[in-house]
Computed example of a mutant assay.
Amino acid sequence: MKGNLLEGADYLAQGFKLITQPGLRLFVIIPLLINIGIFALLLSLTFQQFSQWIDDLMAWLPSWLEFLRWIVWPLTVVFVLAISSYLFSTIANLIASPFNGLLAEKVEERLTGEPVNGPETFAQLLLMVPKSFAREFQKIMYYLPLALLALVITFIPLINVISPLLWFLLGSWMMSIQYCDFPMDNNQRSFKAMKTALGQYRLTSSGFGMIVMAGTMVPLVNFVIMPAAVCGATIYWVEKLKHATPQNNARIKQ
């Protein structure tokens, strides 16, 4: 497979450096506030119910398997965090998608010195909302069949021991898709072309998605992970992905 896991992770590190730079802070604030509000609310609800979920899961097992609780607990933690992190990121990105697209646009303009055809006024930004929501819906519809398959595996005895890993890998791949889509959508790359480009650098894409996924599980870091990931994904687009989607056949059909 082409690419490098560490290279993908480094793009997020570069993204964190960018969000503090003058000229970009304004475009970071709104996604950041949206992210803080949603993550704080939903993570609070998740952890309030976590112990009950463990008890319900153990209730399915015979009493003589009670000793498995110490195994079930960490596996369930990974499982719940993977599902919750992607769910929360999906909701946050759905609401913040127009602003994330604008952030990706400004980052690309700073990196390349060339204008990106995007909204220049608040009214134009509002007009982008339906298009942004439609693109987010595409991601959800792509995710659902894969999540259903992972869910089925979760309930198959013996095989289900790998389900936490599957959920993490799926969440990581979707994080890569989620954030790399912003700069690629700004440049009229289709959803299919976007997935193809990420697949050409699968290890780099996976490394980026994994570190973003891990970041969403860390308190406080998860508040700033969204704008940093948008910036990192835009750097990834400019340096590699832009050349993996030929302009003449990857444009979105009008």
Rank of each mutant, 00 (worst) to 15 (best):
Y179L: 09
G23D: 05
E120Q: 13
M184T: 04
A233T: 07
N187L: 13
E108M: 03
I71C: 07
I211W: 12
T204S: 14
Q178T: 14
N4L: 03
L198G: 08
T154K: 07
G209N: 09
L43Y: 15
W64G: 08
I38P: 00
G37A: 09
F47N: 06
L149S: 03
A228F: 08
L126Y: 06
P22N: 04
G118K: 00
P98K: 08
T196D: 12
T196H: 13
K131P: 00
Q247W: 14
L149G: 04
S163N: 03
T216K: 04
Y86K: 09
L24A: 04
L45V: 15
M194K: 11
R69M: 12
I19S: 02
I71V: 15
P98V: 11
F16K: 06
V28I: 02
Y179V: 12
M128T: 06
F122C: 06
A96W: 08
K2N: 08
P145M: 07
Y142G: 01
Y11F: 13
V221A: 14
L146N: 01
L18E: 05
G232I: 09
L148Q: 01
I159C: 03
A229Y: 01
L12D: 01
T154N: 11
K253C: 09
K240T: 08
I225H: 00
S63P: 07
M141N: 00
F16C: 12
F208A: 11
I235K: 09
C231R: 02
V80S: 15
T154D: 06
D10T: 04
Y143W: 01
Q188G: 11
G232L: 10
W167I: 14
L87R: 02
G101N: 09
I177M: 10
Y142M: 02
I36N: 06
P157W: 07
Q188K: 10
Y11T: 03
P145F: 06
L26V: 12
Q178C: 12
G23V: 11
T90M: 13
N248R: 07
Q21S: 08
V230W: 00
G113R: 00
L26C: 02
E109T: 02
L87H: 02
A104S: 15
T76L: 15
L18A: 11
M226T: 14
L32W: 04
P145T: 02
L151P: 01
F99T: 00
S97Q: 09
F79T: 15
L198W: 11
L68R: 00
F133V: 08
S205E: 08
Q21A: 12
P145N: 02
I95L: 13
V72P: 01
G101M: 12
L151C: 10
L170V: 10
L42H: 06
L41H: 02
P98N: 08
M128W: 01
I54H: 04
K253E: 14
F122M: 12
R135F: 10
R25D: 03
D56V: 15
Q48N: 09
V28S: 00
P227K: 04
P74H: 11
Q178R: 05
K192L: 15
L12E: 01
W70T: 06
F137C: 05
M217R: 04
L149M: 06
P183C: 10
S206T: 14
V230T: 13
S172F: 11
M128P: 00
L61D: 05
I54G: 05
L18K: 09
F79W: 14
K253T: 04
M226G: 03
L127K: 13
F88E: 04
T121E: 06
